[in-house]
Design a protein around this nucleic acid. Structure first.
Length: 598
DNA sequence: TTAGGGTTAG
């Protein structure tokens, strides 16, 4: 007869094994509570000095955005090795603190530990401008760090992400490299694709000695970005093997080209989807305003136990904001708060923007106030949100608070500030801020700023000043500017000026029926019915009437209702029109004359 | 190390 197995020993062993297993996966742990328990156990077992455990712990803490704790772990290690230094640099890069990453790099060199391939790789990821890349480039050249292709390849990649000047630098580096491998070619091709230089990318792709899936994916992405979906699909079919990246690339291509049905067919037929694929599909539906599909897919993704990351949240939130899908935005917000996910500034900014654009200023405001580390984008989004909703004075107050708290406004801030002034009729403030841009902050006004000013002056009835500014600006006026002037002309019954403006608008945007209907409104207001008729016939001649009709949509309990002009297709059409009539009667009573499309 | 999804401006 066999003896029963002893109970205590295996329990002890399995606990230990469990701990070991958890330690080996420690750097992937994203559950903050579990991580804190492990953290305590590690210290209790005196493992925090261990050369493998410490970097893993720092990585995990960085993933959970616990940088203070991560630094604390680092500080307790008596002699940090290069692996641990690199991990801390990487952690700062991941937590959007490139400045800190560079600080750690300096400390690392002072402490006598030599940087290695990974040090430079992480630092290059932290670089946001050419200047810092060039600094590292010079540094590795001085140390003769060209023993293998790792660093030069990373340099090509980093340069390629820095606009056209950066691309030139990477081309030069690519040209002088005596030896190149697959990664060198792939990095160069993806750089060219990003800059829109598809022909050159294709040339390299054709001449490279061997290709792997990354090369194929990069050139596929090139055709997708160029909108050449036929060629892209041919490449997709021709490639020797496809992975989730290839599928995601074509799916996003079809969605961006407007063929969301084709995107969905591919999405449904692909073998294995990941977070990126789901994100592309959900945000594509949301961008199209199809909240129902987007919300449905979002639920399905959650059912697959996929945990969205920052990019995923931001992508879906920005698509919700674009189409005003408050329902989807709220769902995303709920799932962020449900998990113990500590929200990054990036995601918070996207939430603020979404709530502003979906009309929920209160929610936006409370999130804005809860952001621990606000950045310029947080301020810009909130100021712009207040401006959009006509809270001009509050927007200007927030602008002042932002400056008091030490933030330097940028050109986007001024678009928000000037539009706050124009939407609230604050002409004096607007003029003051417009001139202070250049004198106080050395920001040259761009066409958007002139646009806000012309809108501001026009709305305020200073039509001559608006025209004066238009003629003095160093840009050709665009459709936005002419349209805002046409609006101003209507507001102030300036028929002659409006005719001039319409001529300009028709040149730039002949297909747009809105210009003609605005013009015919102006004539109708003046009681000039003959001109109304002539504008109508002009519209027919130029084909303006064929232009797409505007569609309004409203979201109610995850259902979307669309309306066009004179639309009677909605099942509750009668009661909707009854309410609209009631509203306009009420407006007339309180002496507001609504604009009626003639 | 390379490829796919990304926050502020009309």
């Amino acid at each position: 007869m066999q003896m029963p197995a002893p109970i205590r020993a295996p329990t002890f062993l399995s606990r230990r094994r469990l701990f070991e297993q958890k330690l080996s996966d420690l750097h992937k742990c994203t559950d903050l509570n579990q991580l804190k328990q492990l953290h305590a156990l590690i210290y209790k077992s005196n493992l925090h000095n261990h050369p493998f455990v410490a970097p893993k712990l720092v990585s995990a803490l960085s993933l959970c955005r616990q940088m203070a704790l991560a630094v604390n772990v680092f500080d307790q290690v008596e002699e940090p090795n290069s692996h641990l230094w690199n991990t801390l640099i990487k952690a700062y890069v991941q937590n959007s603190r490139p400045d800190k990453a560079f600080e750690v790099f300096c400390e690392m060199r002072c402490s006598g530990v030599s940087p290695d391939n990974y040090t430079y790789l992480f630092l290059l990821k932290a670089c946001s401008g050419l200047k810092s890349i060039k600094m590292i480039h010079a540094h590795v050249e001085k140390c003769n760090f060209y023993s293998d292709l790792f660093v030069p390849n990373s340099l090509i990649d980093a340069y390629s992400k820095c606009g056209l000047t950066g691309l030139e630098e990477s081309k030069t580096l690519f040209g002088v490299m005596s030896e190149r491998d697959l990664v060198t070619y792939n990095s160069m091709i993806s750089g060219l694709v990003k800059a829109g230089e598809l022909k050159e990318a294709r040339k390299l792709f054709d001449e490279m000695p061997e290709r792997d899936r990354v090369s194929w994916n990069a050139i596929l992405d090139g055709y997708v970005k160029a909108g050449e979906m036929r060629t892209a699909y041919q490449i997709f079919e021709k490639m020797p093997s496809r992975d989730v990246v290839s599928w995601s690339t074509v799916i996003s291509g079809y969605a961006k080209a407007g063929d969301i049905d084709m995107a969905k067919v591919l999405f449904d037929s692909m073998p294995a989807k990941n977070l990126v694929t789901w994100t592309i599909m959900i945000s594509s539906y949301a961008e199209k305003g199809n909240g129902k599909e987007a919300v449905g897919l979002y639920h399905r993704m959650e059912g697959e136990k996929l945990r969205p990351d920052d990019t995923s949240f931001v992508s879906i939130l920005s698509a919700s904001a674009e189409s005003g899908l408050l329902g989807l935005g709220k769902k995303v917000h709920q799932s962020i708060t449900k998990t113990s996910y500590k929200c990054s500034t990036l995601v918070n900014n996207a939430l603020v923007d979404m709530y502003c654009k979906c009309g929920s200023l209160n929610r936006a405001w409370s999130i804005f106030n809860s952001i621990e580390r606000k950045d310029l984008i947080s301020w810009n989004a909130m100021i712009h949100g207040l401006a959009m909703h006509g809270h001009g004075k509050n927007a200007l107050q927030l602008f002042d608070r932002m400056k008091r708290e030490g933030f330097e406004p940028d050109k986007v801030t001024f678009v928000a500030v000037l539009s706050a002034c124009s939407h609230s009729g604050l002409v004096k403030d607007g003029i003051h801020h417009f001139y202070s841009m250049e004198s106080d902050y050395e920001i040259a006004p761009e066409i958007e700023h002139y646009g806000c000013m012309i809108d501001l002056l026009g709305r305020g009835g200073c039509l001559n000043e608006a025209f004066g500014l238009l003629h003095s600006m160093p840009f050709e006026p665009n459709v936005v500017i002419w349209s805002s002037l046409l609006g101003a002309c209507r507001m102030h019954n300036a028929v002659e000026l409006a005719n001039e403006v319409l001529d300009q608008l028709v040149k730039l945007d002949p297909e747009n029926a809105r210009n003609y209907s605005m013009m015919s409104n102006i004539h109708a207001n003046a009681g000039d019915w003959g001109s109304v008729a002539s504008v109508r016939s002009r519209m027919k001649e130029t084909g303006g009437e064929r232009a797409n009709k505007g569609v309004s949509s409203i979201e109610l309990h995850d259902e979307f209702h669309e309306f066009t002009v004179m639309d009677t297709t909605h099942p509750k059409s009668d009661s909707i029109y009854e309410t609209v009539d009631g509203l306009s009667q009420h407006l007339r009573k309180i002496a507001c004359v609504p604009n009626v499309v003639v």
